[in-house]
């Protein structure tokens, strides 16, 4: 009956589940601003640091964040990778740069593409600016920013950047 030749080694059992997501209050608010072309972070009442995109909480203290801080669209590459393999279902073709970017005035990085440059010229500390899609295409999405493009500025020492931010945020710290 069940000799090796007739052993079932596998079969397809597709799973389909339908989900409706709730982004959360803070992220919803952030995405509504993105639709208007504005990047709005939140400041932690406990640490004074600015988190973008905000998630409604200060992960360091577990306290809710409510104070909004509108940010510009320039920032610094804190670190990055050059991806040489395709991302499933993503039209971006390799090799491309995915960077951890810290916007000016913010204290936490997010990941986004860095493009329209020679990949070899991008370094830790490279200054970048957002390149937006046409206004007509803006949606409730981080993808309204097509990618970040290097600025013609000297790279930043990220350790000095961190030190100056930590000094700066001290004055915003509440009890």
């Amino acid at each position: 009956m069940s000799d090796e030749k007739t052993m079932v080694e596998g079969f397809e059992a597709p799973i389909s589940l339908h989900y409706t997501f709730a982004a959360g209050h803070a992220i919803s608010k952030f995405l509504r601003s993105m639709k208007e072309g504005k990047i709005v972070g939140q400041r932690s009442p406990a640490t004074g640091k600015v988190i973008v995109p905000p998630r409604g909480s200060c992960p360091e203290s577990g306290k809710p964040t409510t104070e909004e801080v509108e940010l510009g669209d320039t920032g610094t590459v804190i670190t990055f990778t050059v991806v040489h393999i395709p991302i499933p279902n993503n039209p971006v073709k390799p090799p491309f740069i995915v960077a951890n970017i810290c916007l000016d005035g913010a204290d936490q990085t997010f990941i986004h593409l860095v493009s329209d440059c020679n990949n070899d010229d991008v370094k830790i500390g490279t200054r970048v600016k957002a390149v937006w899609k046409d206004k007509a295409e803006w949606d409730y999405s981080m993808d309204n920013i097509k990618y970040f493009k290097p600025l013609d500025e000297a790279p930043v020492d990220i350790e000095k950047l961190k030190a100056s931010r930590l000094k700066e945020v001290g004055k915003y710290r509440h009890a």
Binding site: F21, A23, I27, L31, I78, T79, F80, T81, V83, I85, P86, I87, P88, N89, N90, V92, V98, A99, N100, I111, H112, L113, I124, Y140, S141, M142, D143
Partner: peptide
């Protein structure tokens, strides 16, 4: 790769698996 990178509507879908997350840390 699918299990770790299921697409959520409100975040950019750029993180190509665990390697894409850890490579920048290694660079630093």
């Amino acid at each position: 790769m699918w299990a770790l990178s299921s697409k959520q509507p409100f975040s950019p879908h750029l993180n190509a698996g665990a390697g894409g997350f850890f490579a920048p840390i290694i660079r630093e």
